[in-house]
């Protein structure tokens, strides 16, 4: 089967596959990731895993079409997002739900207005219909009581859940979450995981991609894992395969072991140390 035939077959399925073909990503002349090749299966939860600053969010921004790769292709539902007509991609992106790191809710709008924003701006639905949809989506994340609150009146976890409600408002076939559990306490993080799993049950055709470095979360929710390190992919496969991997970095990452060697690179001179001690003791 040729690549094109494969993409046409993929298009017939309701769930959106994401195919990354030899991607090279970066900013200006700086390469952040290269040789990134993998397929995120449609209708499953994929976790992009890796240490801080390894390019997870950069990869997500490219999948969203917010940045153009230096080279390579990204196929969404069998279509190359960087060669398809702009209008068509915009129509496609309208159906993607995105949860940004801190929710990225508009500070000037209430929670209800934030969640209803894509409907208010992109459709001609009546206010009463939008209000009902907003109430339903907020109830999915347990925030129906908070529709009239402003984002700055809510906790970080609530803002993330509200961001998730907004991401779900257009019934997206593809949901992308940038570190949905970062900054949350273990109970709230577990609740967010349960929320994603319950979404998966409610909408079986929804493809979910989540960027994370939270191992517990990845273990709980991920059907497929892509791990990044040293500017490239070091692992792609199922969660079970990840835990069976013999790769030394993967093992160290999973067992939360520090890199061997000195933690500090340089030492203070005795004069500087003495001066500092003198001021601290005063």
């Amino acid at each position: 089967m040729s690549l094109d035939d494969k993409h046409i077959t993929a298009k017939k399925s309701k769930a959106w596959d994401i195919e990354l073909c030899d991607l090279r990503l970066g900013y200006g002349d700086t390469v952040v990731l290269e040789h990134v090749t993998d397929t995120f299966p449609g209708g499953k939860i994929t976790a992009i895993l890796g240490g801080s600053g390894c390019g997870k969010s950069t990869l997500l921004r490219h999948i969203l079409g917010l940045r153009t790769p230096m080279s390579g292709q990204i196929y969404l539902d069998g279509r190359d997002i960087f060669t398809m007509p702009k209008k068509e991609f915009r129509r496609m992106r309208r159906r993607m739900g995105v949860l940004f790191q801190d929710g990225a809710l508009l500070g000037a709008l209430t929670l209800g207005e934030n969640v209803g924003l894509p409907l208010t701006e992109n459709t001609r639905l009546s206010k009463s219909v939008i209000r009902d949809v907003v109430r339903y989506k907020l109830s999915l994340v347990g925030l129906e009581e908070f529709a009239d609150y402003y984002p700055n009146e809510l906790s970080g976890g609530m803002r993330k859940r509200a961001g998730l409600a907004r991401a779900l408002v257009m019934d997206p076939p593809l949901l992308l979450c940038d570190e949905p559990t970062s900054g949350l306490d273990p109970i709230n993080a577990a609740q967010m995981d349960q929320l994603l799993l319950s979404l998966k049950q409610e909408f079986p055709d929804m493809t979910i991609v989540t960027v994370s470095h939270d191992l517990a979360s990845v273990k709980t929710i991920a059907d497929h894992v892509l791990m990044l390190h040293n500017k490239t992919v070091i692992f792609a496969g199922s969660g079970e395969e990840l835990y069976a991997s013999e790769d030394p970095y993967v093992r160290r990452f999973l067992s939360r072991k520090a890199v061997p060697g000195k933690i500090t690179g340089i030492e203070l001179s005795s004069e500087v140390r003495a001066e500092l001690d003198r001021w601290i003791s005063q």
Binding site: L66, L105, P118, E121
Partner: peptide, 13 residues
């Protein structure tokens, strides 16, 4: 700087 403009863009606004 808080991704709100990117959020608008991905909502096709």
């Amino acid at each position: 700087i808080t991704d709100q403009i990117d959020a608008l863009e991905v909502m096709d606004i």
